[in-house]
């Protein structure tokens, strides 16, 4: 469980870490839009450079980024194979046996690969440099204008932060139940289909029971401490935008605007 890099917060000290979560979320959205523009190779080279600078500023190691991308590899290989069969346009680059490999298929896949990589790196930079709680606070602030259309911004943020808070507890619980059932002879890897189903049940049922117990107790604790879902609350953590946050905005707007102008010409 400790090897997952995607979505993990890294407690380092960098100028990116110190940015306001709202600024980071908006910057991410702007950059995502930029990535989806058909900017051509020069555009992607430019974006790539910007993203590279960002990771260096955030003090993230290449190895960490690589680990966060690994789960995508399977998808990309799958995509390449589909493209090879489906896209039979452009020039034939070479043939494997009698099967022709077309340039479009290869370039299309490369195109998507670059876009996905950039997106994953950007998202990883956001999650690795922002504490989960700050992230939910940022989301809450950004969603609050939508309260006029009755979007429960605060409740959504509360749900996310409680879910994040209980993930380690539930992981620990899962491991304990797995061990307890292993002591009763459960073998998660081997066995016939029926035995496997029982093994999974023996894990899932207790996990649900204990999750409901946590939820019940937690609801009592929250209520006892005066929590009423739709009542106004003051907030301990306050967000403040600084110069650096505006600088990030400016840079992202410049990149996006630049690409748009470039495409127009």
């Amino acid at each position: 469980m400790n090897n997952i890099a995607l979505g993990r917060y890294l407690p380092l000290d960098s100028c990116i870490h110190r940015l306001d979560p709202r600024a980071k979320i908006i910057a991410l959205i702007l950059m995502m839009v930029a990535i989806f523009l058909p900017a051509g190779w020069i555009g992607y080279a430019l974006l790539g450079c910007a993203v590279l600078c960002l990771t260096v500023l955030a003090k993230l190691k290449m190895n960490f980024l690589w680990r966060s991308m690994k789960p995508m590899m399977f998808m990309l290989v799958f995509l390449l194979i589909i493209n090879l069969f489906m896209l039979q346009n452009g020039t034939i680059l070479f043939e494997i046996g009698s099967f022709p490999i077309y340039s479009d298929a290869v370039f299309q896949t490369l195109y998507i690969t670059v876009r996905l990589m950039l997106m994953i790196i950007l998202t990883t930079v956001l999650t690795a440099t922002t504490k989960p709680l700050d992230l939910t606070l940022g989301i809450e602030h950004l969603l609050s204008p939508f309260k006029v259309i009755h979007l429960p911004a605060h409740e959504i943020a509360m749900m996310i932060s409680i879910a994040l808070r209980f993930i380690p507890t539930l992981i620990e619980e899962t491991q304990r139940i797995m061990k307890a059932q292993a002591s009763r002879g459960v073998d998660m890897e081997e066995g016939k289909l029926k035995e496997k189903i029982m093994s999974i049940l023996s894990l899932i049922v207790p996990l649900f029971v204990s999750a409901f117990q946590h939820a019940d107790d937690l609801a009592n604790a929250m209520e006892a401490r005066g929590y009423v879902p739709d009542r106004t609350r003051t907030r301990y953590k306050q967000l403040h935008m600084h110069i650096g946050d505006y600088v990030i905005f400016a840079i992202c707007f410049l990149i996006l605007g630049g690409l748009l102008v470039f495409l127009w010409i």
């Binding site: 139940i177 061990k179 307890a180 002591s183 009763r184 023996s202 207790p206 029971v209």
Partner: peptide, 12 residues
Amino acid sequence: GLVFQFPEYQLF
């Protein structure tokens, strides 16, 4: 035979 802490949570 190993009985874990709070074994009531392994009933299913």
